[in-house]
């Protein structure tokens, strides 16, 4: 049972790291760019908010199957198949949780407007320096929110995992799947334990996020 908790935390941590690395520049572009296609990109990123996880999981499974388009792209890197593997779950989680990370960061970038960046430019900061020393700290409440939401959303993921996971202990059998197994075999003591833990965790996540964000905002003012 603890194996599944460890695996879930590992999946969430890996996905969150990738989500921040991918989501922050993406959010920056969405906040600053005047490119005509940016709202199209934003819509694509937001799709998992609306799509049933089964639909997303179905497309991911087809893309990840041997001979599928995603695998064809990864073959040169020595990855034979993504379906039913831990890296496959990471890819699925990143796609699934991307809007939860990108949207708060984008909002944070948009909130402080052009002024701070212009000020940094007049002080002769290079764009990248200004991004790191001005934009990132100013957007830190949004980034924190994005990170926490991305992590929590990955921990709570079920539908996509069910579709592409294959329930392999130590690799794809995450917490939500383990709970399903226990419930369906009428093994309710461990089901209660894990579910109770999830309930406590989710409560703490939301509370912490609200409190931290408030503090950070006050601090920034």
């Amino acid at each position: 049972m603890w194996e599944t908790v460890g695996l879930t935390v590992k999946l969430a941590a890996t996905s969150t790291t990738l989500l921040l690395l991918l989501g922050t520049p993406l959010a920056w572009w969405l906040a600053r760019s005047r490119h005509w296609a940016k709202e199209v990109v934003a819509t694509v990123i937001a799709l998992p908010l609306v799509l049933p996880p089964t639909v997303l999981g179905f497309y991911l499974l087809v893309a990840m199957a041997p001979g599928g388009p995603l695998n064809a792209m990864l073959k040169p890197f020595g990855i034979a198949s993504l379906a039913f593997t831990f890296p496959g779950l990471v890819v699925g989680s990143v796609v699934y949780s991307l809007p939860f990370v990108v949207n708060p960061i984008r909002n944070a970038f948009e909130a402080f407007g052009d002024r701070p960046m212009e000020a940094a430019a007049t002080l002769r900061a290079r764009p990248f320096d200004a991004f790191v020393t001005v934009a990132l700290p100013l957007a830190s409440p949004g980034i924190l929110t994005g990170a926490i939401l991305g992590f929590a959303h990955t921990v709570g993921e079920f539908g996509v995992v069910l579709m592409i996971g294959g329930n392999i202990p130590g690799q794809t059998k995450v917490l939500s799947m383990t709970v399903l197994d226990y419930v369906e075999t009428l093994d309710w003591a461990p089901a209660h334990l894990l579910s109770g833990m999830m309930l406590g965790f989710s409560f703490c996540v939301i509370l912490t996020m609200t409190v931290l964000e408030k503090r950070l905002r006050r601090h920034l003012r």
């Binding site: 034979a80 198949s81 294959g166 329930n167 197994d181 369906e184 075999t185």
Partner: peptide, 11 residues
């Protein structure tokens, strides 16, 4: 082969 599928033996 890489993967062989079975139904969840518990359920």
């Amino acid at each position: 082969f890489a993967k062989i599928a079975i139904a969840n033996p518990k359920t």
